[in-house]
Deep mutational scan, measured.
Amino acid sequence: DETGKELVLVLYDYQEKSPREVTIKKGDILTLLNSTNKDWWKIEVNDRQGFVPAAYLKKLD
């Protein structure tokens, strides 16, 4: 059920640097789980959840 889920576009590649982070690729469109922290957003990638720098993402309307 995708209702109410926010999507984000990945602006730059990011390689995870800790187990709490996930790797993302430029151009991916992913589900945003939590954006309350202005610097690190929690997203879902391939059934994995983790954090990436918010500056690497853009919210889609």
Rank of each mutant, 00 (worst) to 15 (best):
N46L: 14
T3M: 13
D28E: 15
N46G: 15
N46I: 10
K26Q: 10
K25E: 06
K58V: 12
K25F: 15
Q15F: 15
D61N: 15
L9G: 02
A55D: 07
K58C: 15
E44C: 11
T23P: 03
L33V: 10
Q15W: 14
E16M: 12
Q49F: 07
D61R: 12
W40D: 01
E6Y: 13
I43D: 00
N34W: 07
Y14S: 01
W40C: 06
R48D: 04
D1N: 14
R48V: 07
Y56R: 04
P19A: 12
D1G: 14
P19V: 09
Y14P: 00
D28I: 05
L9M: 09
D61E: 12
K25V: 10
S35N: 07
T31R: 15
K25W: 15
K17F: 06
E2P: 12
G27I: 01
L9I: 11
L9F: 08
L60Q: 05
V52G: 02
L11E: 03
A54E: 03
Q15D: 12
N46R: 12
D39V: 15
A54D: 01
L7H: 12
V22L: 11
S35F: 07
N37T: 06
A54W: 02
L9P: 00
L11D: 01
K42S: 06
V8I: 05
G27T: 02
D13S: 11
A54R: 12
K25T: 10
S35L: 04
Y56A: 10
P53G: 01
S35Y: 08
K38W: 07
K5H: 14
S18E: 09
K38E: 12
L7Q: 10
G50Y: 08
E21D: 04
D1E: 11
T23W: 03
E6C: 15
A54Q: 05
K58F: 09
R48W: 08
D47F: 11
E2C: 14
N37I: 05
E2Q: 13
K25R: 12
L33G: 01
K17L: 09
Q15L: 12
S35A: 12
G4K: 15
F51V: 07
L32G: 00
D1S: 13
T23R: 04
N46D: 15
T3E: 12
R20G: 15
Y12D: 09
S35H: 11
N34V: 08
